[in-house]
Each structure stands twice: as C-alpha cells, then as structure tokens.
Design a protein around this nucleic acid. Structure first.
Lengths: 209, 209
DNA sequence: TTAAAAATCCCCCAATTTGGGGGATACACG
DNA sequence: CGTGTATCCCCCAAATTGGGGGATTTTTAA
C-alpha cells in the first residue's frame, strides 16, 4: 500500500527536492508540502500522513513542538527529522517529542529512500554519530566531584525517597544519609535537593537507571 | 598502533572463535581470553586492554557488573557486549555500566571486525533493533491514565520540586497542585511520591527530559 | 444534551521531612 | 599527618507532605 508523506520544510528548494525524489518512488505518495508547522497542522486531518519529514528549524513553531502536536493527533504517524547539524539537546528533545529517526539533509537520494524504508519497517534510523550521542547520554561523566556513596545517595533522592527510606535501603543510619547530603550540598555549592539534582543531572553525574 | 583486546566469554568455542578471527587482523592483538569476569579483573592491570569483548551472561559476576568494574579501573577501555538476545532491560543496564556498543554473536567475521573498527573510531556500534529500543525508551507510552497536566505535575515531582515550587512554575495555586497529586495517587493507587514515580517511570509515562 | 473528566481553588490538621547548626570516630591514601 | 570518606549522634525551627472535607468552571465524550 502507498504510504502518504507530508513534508514540512521552510526552504523551498529542499522541500521540492525531497518531494520530487519521493514522488518518483511508487510506494510513496507525497500528499502535501508545507513551509510551517502551523500550515501542516491545520491540514493534518485532511492529509492523514503515514510519514512526516520535518525540518527542525522553522519559522514560528519549531519542528520539535510540531512533532509533539502531530503525534498527539496521529500517534501512529512516523515523524522523521531532517537536519544539517547534530545538536545533542535538540536530538533528545525531538526523541522525547516522538520523532522516529533522523535524515541528514545533504545525504544522497537513495539513502533518503532507504532511511524512510527502515523507519517504516520499524527501525529507528539514525547516523552513527547520533547513536553515539544517545549512548553517551547513558554513561556517567568521570569528572564528578561526588564520591560513590554520595552519588548513590543523590540517586536515591532523585527517586523521591526520604532520608529515612534512603537510610533503610542502604542499611545505614539516617544521620549518615544527612552527612552525605551535607557534603553533597557543600561540594555542589547548593542548599536544596532541587538544585543538587539540577547540577548533577545537567553534568550527567547520576545514572539514568 | 596495535589495539590490545581481551575476550570474556564462558563458552570456549565462541571465545576461541573470536580470538582466532581477531588475531588474524594486524591492527588487533588478543592479549588474553577468560571464561569469567573474576579472572579477567584479576589480570586487568597486567593485560591493559584497549578493548574488551564481554559476554553478558556469565557464571559468577554478570557482564554488566563486570563492565562497571572494568570501566572503574580503565575508564578509556572500550567494552563491547557480545549478545544473542536483545533484552531491553539488559541493554540499558549495560549502557549505564559503560558499554560502548553491541556485537551480535552470530554475525559474520568481517562485520565483527567492522563493528570493532567503528567503536575505535568513536562510534557507538549497535544493531538497528537496539537503536530502536533506545529511541523508544525516550518516547512516551500512550497508555497513561494520567492527564497532561497530571503528567506535568508528576514530572516536576520527579525533579525534586516542592508543591509550592511546582505551583509557582506552572502559575497555579499550591492547592491545585495538591488536587492533581491526589488524583494521581488515586489513579495509580498509591499514596506517596516514591510509589507514584516508581509506577510512572516503570511504564514510561513521563518524559526523560 | 448530559454526564464524566479535567483543571482550578479553598479550608483544617498532624506527622514527617528538611536543612541549618554543632559535634565524634574510624579507615584509607598519599 | 592531613585530607577525604563513611559512619553515627544531638538540637531545633521551618517547610513539606498527605489525609480529610469541600467548591467552581471548562472541556470532552457518550
């Protein structure tokens, strides 16, 4: 069955380029092309795309917000991000918004079709460098000022545990937990859970699991 | 320069198979092979491997715990997991422990060498299905009983914020936050932050960012 | 159109938690 | 022999949490 594709990209040349390429492939049917998310969202019900190719930098609503909106209306629609630069922040935000993969803007025509095929087949197409970015996000930075035990305690705080619960889980006294927390606060130069967690997670000093 | 490789795999046939293949490649030098993490860890200082090929299911210490231990002693050592089945839990635990990529056990010889090359070049080699697994972990399950606002509130609790802080950030009254939390507790059949967070994060009902 | 769900706000209240002090002891590493 | 780590203890006041009991409005769905 033909897959319905919508393209959202503000640069006309790139938009029409993708469109021309994909229109020539039998299994794909480009139902519409838009320069902004706003336009695309207004016609979403009518277009009913199976796949959306979405630029990340758009005038008005960003591609990330747009992705979230589209997934809200059409949860099964696959949104593929078209990108030039690989900004780690934006990559994660897109993934959280529901993006299913990445297409590099200047890649050749066959690889674009191949990428879409992979996505349709249930894969999560992304370049090796994006995969590395994602994998790295799971790994701890080795530059943490916190000791192992302190990290363990902070981790438990991130899970919402109280001092008493942490103490029980680690088989230590509640006072010891307090000592660790005092040291954490001193090292990170903060004086509350929220601030400590903010700093530690921004620097990837805690495990994500 | 020759890369020093250590193989940890309890099945002799597979262990020797990898060893033979990699020994025949000039840029790689298999310095040692072990059946258990314990043995490998005892000789780590002497072996000084650049790359470790690690089976995930081992007698005694698991490959995941072993990976964490190795990274503690040799932070720059690249640990590649050798795996047959792709269990999402274990994949994430390995990544958190510091694994740099995955090698599928029954892949052909050239692709094994290619995977190691990618890892050395700074990539994060993994199969498409593992990439999908990782990407999916960033995406919300659509089966959440919580409303958007409730999810937002729970998200804030996960960040360690107090009711007052949440209220301020969302521009609502603290009492409204309390109402949302009461509803969250009712829906999830819990009566504390910890339990609510446990259920919601286990089901992927909250954003990771 | 009507009922349910969602989002907003208010009160009372007691137990728990938090974070600020002030300590102490023991062990390891260099 | 100091510095860091890990463990434990005390006091105390302010803040937080979670259990009740409500209410109103808007949005959504049946």
């Amino acid at each position: 069955m033909e897959k319905r594709i919508t393209i959202i990209e503000d640069i006309a040349a790139i938009r029409e380029g993708f469109s021309t390429v994909l229109s020539s492939v039998n299994k794909y049917q480009v139902v519409n092309r838009y320069a902004t998310c706003e336009d695309a969202l207004a016609n979403l019900d009518k277009d009913q795309p199976d796949i959306v190719l979405m630029d990340i930098e758009l005038p008005g609503m960003s591609g990330i917000a747009g992705t979230a909106q589209i997934k809200k209306v059409l949860p099964d629609c696959i949104v593929l991000i078209i990108t030039v630069l690989e900004d780690s922040e934006k990559v994660f935000q897109s993934l959280c918004a529901g993006a299913g993969g990445y297409i590099v803007k200047n890649s050749n025509l066959e690889s674009i079709v191949q990428t879409i095929d992979e996505a349709v087949a249930g894969g999560a197409p992304m370049s090796l460098s994006i995969a590395r970015m994602v994998v790295q996000s799971f790994q701890l930075q080795p530059d943490s000022p916190l000791s192992e035990r302190e990290t363990e305690v902070l981790q438990s705080i991130a899970e919402g545990k109280s001092y008493s619960k942490i103490a029980a889980d680690l088989y230590i006294s509640r006072e010891t937990v307090r000592s660790h927390i005092k040291n954490i606060y001193r090292k990170l130069e903060v004086s509350s859970k929220v601030d400590a967690l903010k700093i530690a997670s921004a620097n990837n000093w805690m495990n994500k699991l």
